[in-house]
């Protein structure tokens, strides 16, 4: 609780984020910036990612009653939208949208948390510290994607009847009642990989570590990696799709499919979606 510490952090907070060069290997602000590219054209909506997330991140199964009341804790959910001008039948299929925490650079949730339980890490993640959280739920109010999930019930006492608790991942906490939680890009995996890499005096290699959803996805629709490293696949994809992390309005060719959701609100998300393609002549 030193004043210097506060002031240092404060000045970092007060900067406009993301600033140019923040995630640049040459500038050395940060060695990592985790980002995703999600191809909606090959996402089949199969929910493998959701289940993998339940397995990896100790998500409670809430049951029918509570699901009905909106207490589902799926950190990643598959949304299904029909086209707005649909005729008698949805003749061009439907649209699936996997939605998880977008790890915004200028995250609306971070500024409003009274205790700083959610804040930005150096590698561009929007961290959520369960033990600091007092449950004011302001972050959820301010999240435009509504991907923050509050523990309205004491799930540890109900969601894992013995011996189901043996399945729990010891690398992360089981959240008790009264705290907010959300997708972390499987930070426990990232931390492990980063620590291993540092021990070997190198950076984390591309593809060395991926979140559970990316690892499970049967169609490889999600690409994950360190966007600071220009040779990583995800950085190449962002560049190829002409999506710039630092811009709130992209100037790109109409044939390119990259976009970020609700960019106009300027949260600068770390997840690039790639547009669904439909053969209009079919």
């Amino acid at each position: 609780m030193s004043i210097t510490n506060l002031l240092n952090n404060w000045s970092f907070y007060r900067q406009k984020r993301p600033f140019r060069g923040q995630y640049d290997l040459n500038k050395q602000y940060s060695e990592y910036k985790w980002a995703m590219a999600l191809d909606l054209d090959i996402c089949t909506g199969c929910n493998a990612c959701t289940t993998a997330c339940y397995a990896e991140n100790n998500l409670p199964v809430v049951g029918k009653e509570r699901y009905q009341h909106g207490y589902a804790m799926h950190w990643i959910r598959i949304e299904r939208y029909w086209d707005e001008n649909m005729g008698e039948f949805p003749e061009s299929g439907t649209s699936f949208l996997p939605m998880m925490c977008q790890q915004c650079e200028e995250a609306p949730c971070e500024t409003v948390c009274p205790v700083g339980a959610t804040n930005h890490t150096n590698d561009g993640l929007n961290s959520q510290n369960y033990h600091r959280c007092i449950g004011s739920r302001y972050c959820s109010v301010n999240c435009p994607y509504k991907v923050r999930y509050f523990n309205f019930w004491n799930y540890p006492s109900t969601a894992w009847p013995s011996p189901l608790q043996d399945q729990l991942n010891p690398d992360l906490t089981v959240r008790t009642k009264g705290v907010m939680e959300k997708c972390t890009f499987c930070v426990q995996r990232l931390n492990e990989a980063k620590s291993r890499a540092r021990t070997e005096y190198r950076l984390v290699k591309d593809g060395e570590v991926v979140p559970a959803c990316v690892q499970a996805c049967p169609t490889n629709a999600i690409t994950f990696g360190n966007i600071v490293d220009p040779k990583s696949k995800v950085a190449k994809m962002w560049k190829n799709q002409q999506v710039d992390l630092y811009k709130d309005e992209q100037e790109k060719d109409s044939s390119m499919r990259g976009y970020r959701i609700l960019e106009d609100l300027r949260p600068f998300p770390s997840v690039m979606y790639m547009e669904r393609v439909r053969d209009m002549e079919a």
Binding site: L40, E79, Y81, D83, S92, S95, F96, L97, K233, K236, M237, N240, Q241, S254, S255, M256, R257, Y259, I261, L262, Y273, E275, R276, V277, R278, D279, M280, E281
Partner: peptide, 18 residues
């Protein structure tokens, strides 16, 4: 909202993608 955007296949240039 612009959540899922659909691009006609004849506009998309998948071959230019990585």
């Amino acid at each position: 909202r612009k959540l899922v955007v659909t691009l006609p296949a004849d506009v998309a240039q998948l071959s230019k993608e990585i």
